[in-house]
Amino acid sequence: MHLAYPAVLAVLLFCVGLYGVLARRNTILVLMSVELMLNAVNLNLVAFDVWLRDALHSGQALTLFTIALAAAEIGIGLAIVLAVYRNRGSSDIDRLRDTAETDAAEALPDDEDAADGTADQATAPAGKAKKAEATA
């Protein structure tokens, strides 16, 4: 078999997964796209292992390890997504902007150093109330 077939198919699958990671809004759909990218890598590993006829079969062994790692990754990822959903009431990636570098967040340290503590205290009850709404 021509080696270009599996290689090109792996490249296309990887780019489809790349599009999904960048364009999807739901976190679980992003995880599905990550799975597609991992599978493209697996296909490459198997194809090149069969082509090179490696005595150790490192490609196929690495593929098995990647599959197991993907299972672990999806378990941890879904646990994180569920924890985020429980706390926020949403699992949309572009709404999780707490650590975003907005203009307001960058302007805070410039005001006064003493105002930091009061600002934290002022925002903390709001966040707590939001979490209470989400869990209620």
Binding site: Y19, L22, A23, R25
Partner: peptide, 15 residues
């Protein structure tokens, strides 16, 4: 709203 607003940028990068 399954896709975010930057899907055209994503399509460009992927393509």
């Amino acid at each position: 709203d399954a896709d975010s607003d930057n899907r055209w940028i994503a399509a460009g990068v992927a393509g």
